[in-house]
Amino acid sequence: MSEGTMQRRVQRDDDQRPQRAGRAKRRGRALVGVTAVPVMLIAAGCSSDSGSGDDAKQSSESAASASASPSPTVRAAVYDTLPEPCGMLAKKTLEDLVPKGTKGREGTSDDTATRANCSWSSLDNNGVKGSQFRWLNVSLLRFDSDVTRGAGDERAKEYYDKQVQDAQAVADAENTEAEPVSGTGDEATLVRYDLKKKEGSFKQQTVVTRIENVVITLDYNGAGLAGDKTPDADDLAKAATKAAKEAVGAVTETKGAADGDAAADGASSSAPSSASPSAEKG
């Protein structure tokens, strides 16, 4: 091979070396790119799995929290019934308050275990010497406990306050006074006032009492008619508060009766059968 020929081959090799190097470099970048694709897919897959796990964990924790949360509750009402309204005051008490009208008249109610009342009226007619009039009314209202509306005693307290306010806001009332009454239920208030009518001057006494979830409103008034003397307001107030305490006692007795019935039912259900299984088989 001549020297000229050798120089041309060397030159071609030198010319082709950069091209081969470029192709090798591009193949390397292509391989690197191909290698990166699975890595990215693996990373994306890990990220997706991690998010799903967090969501599942949060959902599980929320469900556990919801199941662990207690249902709303409210304390039970103490009284679940009312006494018979016309039989809650003793005969002697009625003779003192309404001497000529001891037979009561029960009001209408679609649920006597929740709402009840009885009224008595008395007219002691002395002809030309005048007459003494007395009127007595006892109303009872019982409140049940309710999750949305509250405990029975709290609802009764709201009604009690309203009854006291209403008694002090009677139209045309004069000399209105209000004072607490001790030893009568959980709380009691006496509201007294004068009310003039065409028949005469009436002395009104209203005793509002709350015992747990029951409110008792006792209205008692008296008047001297046809020229007879007006009764003493203090005497009427004393008689009204005495009757209110008696009404509270009648309410508390319903709880004792209910407890006694529950105890009797429990004893009856736990009593052994009179005949044993073996005796029945025999």
Results as ranks from 00 to 15, higher is better:
Thr189Leu: 04
Ala64Trp: 03
Ala169Met: 07
Arg23Pro: 02
Pro85Arg: 07
Arg134Cys: 00
Ile42Gly: 15
Lys91Gly: 05
Trp135Val: 09
Arg75Ile: 04
Gly266Arg: 04
Gln163Thr: 05
Cys86Leu: 06
Thr5Phe: 14
Thr241Cys: 02
Asn125Val: 06
Asp54Gly: 03
Tyr159Gln: 12
Gly22Ile: 04
Lys255Gln: 14
Tyr160Asp: 12
Gly260Met: 12
Asp146Met: 10
Gly260Thr: 12
Val164His: 08
Ala258Gly: 05
Gln165His: 06
Leu236Lys: 06
Ser270His: 03
Asp15Phe: 05
Ala77Gln: 14
Asn117Gln: 13
Gly185Val: 12
Arg27Gln: 11
Thr5Ala: 15
Ser119Asn: 12
Gly51Cys: 07
Tyr79Cys: 04
Arg192Val: 13
Ala240Asp: 11
Gln19Gly: 07
Ala44Cys: 12
Asp265Tyr: 01
Ala258Leu: 10
Lys255His: 12
Arg115Tyr: 15
Ala233Trp: 00
Thr209His: 08
Leu94Trp: 02
Asp259Trp: 02
Arg23Trp: 03
Gln204Glu: 13
Leu41Phe: 09
Pro70Gly: 11
Arg23Tyr: 03
Asp14Arg: 02
Ala116Asp: 13
Pro18Tyr: 01
Ser121Phe: 07
Arg155Ile: 08
Val215Asp: 14
Ala247Pro: 05
Ala243His: 09
Ala44Lys: 05
Ala156His: 09
Lys100Phe: 08
Arg155Ser: 10
